[in-house]
């Protein structure tokens, strides 16, 4: 990420340390993950210790300190999805793509993530693939959806 871009994100939050969380969210929104240099830049730009920025980035589960794949498959692990077999979807991706939750395939094509409920409980088990919600999934439909991903 260019320094100018980072600066404009910092500026949009008024360089306020209280907006550290929102600042990091914007960076991840742009970059898809939180590169090391950006965290250092944020620390310097907001005049807060890097230890605090790093603590923030590792506390909240929506942040990734590793590059994420071109496609992101997020499987909902809420209770309703759990009782309807969400764990099996995770195991399916583990089996078929060799990645566990929070991991990315070596070719940076696919990242598997889990989330504790997205609030579409009636549709469980559910996965969000590149921002699209897919409900009432079986391992087979999920498999097909992931195969269809381009690139």
């Amino acid at each position: 990420m260019e320094n100018a871009e980072l600066e404009s994100i910092l500026a949009s939050h008024g360089h306020r340390p209280s907006e550290l969380l929102a600042t990091l969210q914007d960076i991840q929104g742009n970059e898809n993950w939180l590169p090391r240099e950006s965290l250092a830049h944020v620390a310097a730009g907001l005049n807060v210790p890097l230890s605090r920025v790093y603590g923030m980035a590792t506390f909240f589960s929506s942040f990734s300190l590793k590059p994420r794949g071109k496609h992101v498959c997020t499987i909902c692990m809420g209770t309703a999805c759990h009782v309807r077999g969400a764990q099996r979807l995770v195991e399916h991706v583990e089996r078929e793509h060799g990645i566990g939750p929070g991991e990315t395939t070596a070719d940076l094509r696919l990242t598997l993530e889990t989330v504790n409920c997205v609030g579409a409980c009636a549709m469980g088990p559910l996965a969000i693939i590149d921002g699209e919600y897919h409900g009432q999934l079986s391992t087979q439909t999920l498999g097909r959806l992931l195969k269809k991903l381009k690139g």
């Binding site: 692990m77 809420g78 209770t79 309703a80 999805c81 759990h82 504790n116 409920c117 609030g119 579409a120 409980c121």
Partner: peptide, 10 residues
């Protein structure tokens, strides 16, 4: 609304 299985606030 963090309770898994709840989406009324949503």
């Amino acid at each position: 609304e963090g309770d898994p299985g709840a989406f009324m606030d949503c």
